[in-house]
Every structure is written in C-alpha cells, then in structure tokens.
C-alpha cells in the first residue's frame, strides 16, 4: 500500500494578513502546514498503524520555505517527501496538472488532499487532481474504512451526509472530524532529519507532466476584505436591549 498526502503551507489562522497596492503581504505571518492537510497525514499514519504495510509520501508544491511544512509531516511520521519548488503561486487547476505527473510516477493507491486550504480558500485541488489522474474522488470525508481494493467513506454533502464506496486508486479530501492529528514528537522531529526530502524545480516537473508551469487564471489583485458595519451596541437590561434590537432589525435594517 502506498499513500501520497498533498500538503500546503499556509498562514497560521491567527496571523495578520496585510495587503498594499493590490499585493498580499505575508511577511509577518507565521506559516504552518494547513490544518485540513494534517487530517490526511494523520489518516495515512493511522492506516499504517492498523497493521497495513504502508509507504507514506508527502507531496507539496510551493516556494522554498514550504519545506518547513513538509518537515512537519515528516516529523509526524511520513516516510519521505517530494517538494515541487515553485515561485509561481499556482491556482488549483494548474497545480493539479503539475502534481498529477508526480502522483502518476509514485503510483499510490490513495491520495489525501486537505478539503479546503486556508490560503486560497479553494476546495478544487482534490477533485481536479482526481480528474487529471482519471480517478474517482470523495470530498469532505469524515470517516474512511478499507475493504479489499475499495474504500468506504462518509462525507458531508449539501443536505446531510452520504456514504460512498470507491474503487482504488482514489483521491480523498479530508476535513475536521476524520481524526485528531498528532503533534510531531521531539524524537520524531530528530529522526525526520534523516528522511529524504526531494526538491524538484517546477519547470522540470511541469515539463515531465506535460503541464504548463503557470497559472490557468490570472491573479490581478488582492485586497483586504473590509465591510463597513454599523457597530451599534444596544444598552439596557436584556428585555430593553432585545426589544430595541428587534425594532431596529425591522425598521432600520429592514431584515425582519
């Protein structure tokens, strides 16, 4: 059994994100492995710990510094990693094309991708990658079990949940509820030093995959989302404030 887990390095949720002149400034932000991606790493580790002989390979496409996120996965217990080093911020479709080449070479049975990474707020990478590979996918997965050659997953859909069976190989996107990711332990952090982290330039990987080494869309500007709010605080005891609120929602904001 071989599992590839796809990673992204994203700003910590508490990080302050700034923008000026239409360009994002992340210089002050702490960057971490995306929380959604951690669920995939953890699930792969658990599959191995349940006794199935499993090689786990982390795969990421991002700038030089994304190696730090990859090292977190290695310290959590992933066996080795491939880092497609890219200074271009690819969109999901372009990244899926590039990564599909690497995944094809690795030929795993299962690929985990975070359900929606906290930098691009996109959930497209998993489905796009599955399509590029010609594989089925399940997204927003909260439960996963194996039965010879197939997996059964429970995932969230618009009006509830759905249980699917998928033949392998398949792409599964992960989210909260699937498991509780572990911290890398100090001994494992030290051991990770000796694991292989193979860096490959985007241009080479893209050429080998027959994919463009560039975005499919054009990012023109990034601005901080600001919405002006009324910021009215209603005073008085609970009854007075509640009555005044309902009155204002009806008469002032006209939403009731």
């Amino acid at each position: 059994m071989k599992i590839v887990t796809i990673l992204k390095q994203v700003p910590d949720a508490e990080a302050r994100v700034r923008a000026s002149g239409g360009t994002l400034d992340l210089s002050g932000a702490t960057l971490v492995i995306d929380g959604m991606d951690e669920y995939g790493v953890e699930e792969a580790l658990r599959i191995r710990e349940r006794g199935m002989e499993t090689e786990i390979v982390a795969l990421a496409c991002g700038p030089e510094r994304a190696a730090e996120a990859i090292r977190t996965a290695l310290a959590m217990g992933v066996d080795r990693a491939v880092h497609v080093v890219s200074d271009v911020t690819l969109d999901a479709v372009a990244m899926a094309r590039v990564l599909a080449g690497v995944v094809q070479d690795e030929a795993p049975e299962l690929v985990f991708v975070g359900g929606k990474q906290a930098d691009w707020d996109s959930s497209a990478l998993g489905p796009a990658l599955a399509e590029a590979l010609g594989w089925p996918h399940a997204d927003w997965t909260t439960e996963l079990t194996f039965e010879d050659g197939t997996i059964t997953v429970t995932h969230d859909i618009d009006d509830g949940t759905e249980t699917l069976t998928l033949p392998l190989p398949a792409v599964v996107t992960t989210q909260q509820g699937l498991n509780e990711p572990r911290y890398p332990t100090l001994p494992n952090i030290m051991k990770a030093k000796r694991k292989t982290l193979e860096a490959r330039p985007l241009a080479d990987v893209a050429a080998a995959a027959g994919a463009p080494a560039d975005r499919a869309t054009e990012l023109r500007a990034s601005e901080i989302e600001a919405r002006s709010r009324r910021n009215v605080v209603l005073d008085g005891d609970a009854k007075t404030a509640a009555t005044e609120l309902v009155r204002r929602l009806r008469d002032e904001a006209k939403v009731l």
Binding site: S123, A132, T217
Partner: peptide
C-alpha cells in the same frame, strides 16, 4: 454548493478550461 464545488473542478480539468472558483 458543496456538490457544485465538488464536480466543477473536474469539468474544468476535462475541458482544459480555467476555473474561477466560488
């Protein structure tokens, strides 16, 4: 929707089209 977000990237990939998402 969840479902739309799930299949539209596949449609884009299949058509070789760019995806403007969400």
């Amino acid at each position: 929707s969840r479902f739309g977000l799930s299949y539209s990237p596949r449609v884009a990939m299949r058509l070789g089209a760019p995806l403007l998402e969400d």
